[in-house]
Amino acid sequence: MSDTVMNPPAGSMSRGNRSDAIFIAGVIVVGAIAMAQPWLGVSSYFLTLIYYVAYYLALGQAWNLMSGLTGYVSFSHGALAGIGAYAVVLSLNGNLPMALALVVAAIATVAASLIIGATALRLRGTAFTFATLFFQELVLLLVRKLPFTGGSSGLILYQIIPVWIAYVMMVTVAVAATIAFALTRRSRLGIRMLAIKSDESAAAAIGIDSTRLKIILFCASAGIAGLVGAVHGIFVATLYPEVIFSVDLSIVALAVALIGGVGSAAGPIAGAIVYVGLREIVQVVAPGAHLVIIGLLLLGIILFLRDGIVPAVGRLVSRKGSRSSTSGRQS
């Protein structure tokens, strides 16, 4: 039709290759700084705050990897993290070395996710969401019943593991999860997932096996959630089913991504910071109103900010900035 350029210019594969690299570098730098904190003499309160930001961030990215890319909302990530917690404590109590215990936790969680995956991923989006909600309940009920999990009285980690180890591990997982998300979004897998999210039928017409990809993504997402849960299990050292498998955690995983921006690597970062900050403020100002405030925040963002904080900021920046032909959306 017209003169064709034989070779694609470098970096035309998808937008923002350079901004991606900058973002990843930034995340690593911030992560390194965070990791250094215990030795810089900051208060343990501040360290706890950073820990929780990393914790919710990591879980949010795990959720984001599945639900942000596929549009299938999962309410099971809290339960998946819980499975990781129980698996790691049981393994450590069984005298397995730390590295192996973490691997066991990830594998256990992935195995559990395959159960939901094989059953629920054939369903329409909303039915899948319910299935994950039920999974959460089911796991809670089972854990209370099964003998080796210590039942309602809880499970205790025998070893004394210094808190700073859990702290460092959680920051590492948070950084790794964020980078994993950013890389996946750009990869063929990420592109195909977003194609499925855009138009599942048209995606099938170009050879995409949506069920298989959804399962792969869900398992990967679950594995990360399992690791996050495992590290947290080490952090708290005593596991009570009602707490560990409370649906609250699944809500937080979701809220963190939603507040910051679903489907972007930066979203859960903003979301985790906002959530933890807000929670601390509410604790002081109006304890007991915690749920109401979070609910109203979420409602406000959905109604007025549409995609979350990060894209909203991006729109603001691009409107004030130059008139480039590409929209101002970031990673």
Partner: peptide
């Protein structure tokens, strides 16, 4: 979905 869910949280909290 998230909208009704947030409503639920607000309600529960109230």
């Amino acid at each position: 979905l998230m909208m009704t869910f947030s409503l639920s949280i607000v309600g529960l909290g109230l």
